[in-house]
Simulated scan of single mutants.
Amino acid sequence: MALPLRDRAGNVLLDVRRVAESELPAVAAALVVAGHAGAVLMMLDARRGQWELPGGMREPGETARETAARELAEETGLRGVVLTFAAVAEFDLVDPARRELLAVYRAELATAPRLALSEEGLGFRWWSPREPAGPDMSPLDAEIAARVWT
Rank of each mutant, 00 (worst) to 15 (best):
F85R: 11
E90H: 15
A89T: 01
F91V: 00
P96V: 06
T76W: 01
E90T: 12
G77Y: 09
A87M: 05
V94T: 14
L83S: 03
P96E: 10
D95I: 07
A69H: 09
E90D: 15
F91E: 00
L93R: 08
P96C: 10
F85M: 10
L72D: 01
D92L: 07
L93Y: 11
L72C: 05
L78S: 01
T84G: 14
G80A: 04
R98T: 07
T76G: 02
E71G: 04
A69K: 08
E90M: 10
L72I: 01
V81Q: 11
E74G: 08
A97K: 15
G77C: 07
L72Y: 04
R98Y: 09
A97P: 15
E71L: 13
A97C: 12
R79V: 11
F85S: 07
D92P: 03
G80L: 08
A73C: 11
T76C: 02
R79M: 11
F85V: 04
E74N: 13
V81G: 04
L78P: 01
L93K: 13
L93M: 14
E71M: 12
L72R: 00
D95G: 12
D92H: 08
P96D: 11
A97N: 11
A86Q: 05
R79G: 09
R70L: 10
F91P: 00
R79P: 07
V88A: 03
E75P: 02
T84I: 10
G80Q: 09
L93Q: 12
R79D: 12
T84D: 15
V94H: 10
R70E: 09
E90Y: 13
R79L: 10
G77P: 06
E74T: 06
T76E: 02
V81N: 07
G80T: 05
E90F: 12
V94M: 11
T76S: 03
E71F: 03
A97T: 13
L93N: 08
F91W: 07
A87H: 05
A86C: 11
A97D: 13
A86E: 04
L83E: 04
R98P: 03
E74I: 02
F85T: 04
L72P: 03
A87Q: 07
V81T: 06
F85I: 05
V88C: 05
V94P: 07
A97M: 13
G80N: 08
R98Q: 15
A86L: 06
D95K: 14
V88I: 11
V94N: 11
P96Y: 13
A73T: 04
D95S: 15
A87R: 04
A86K: 02
G77E: 06
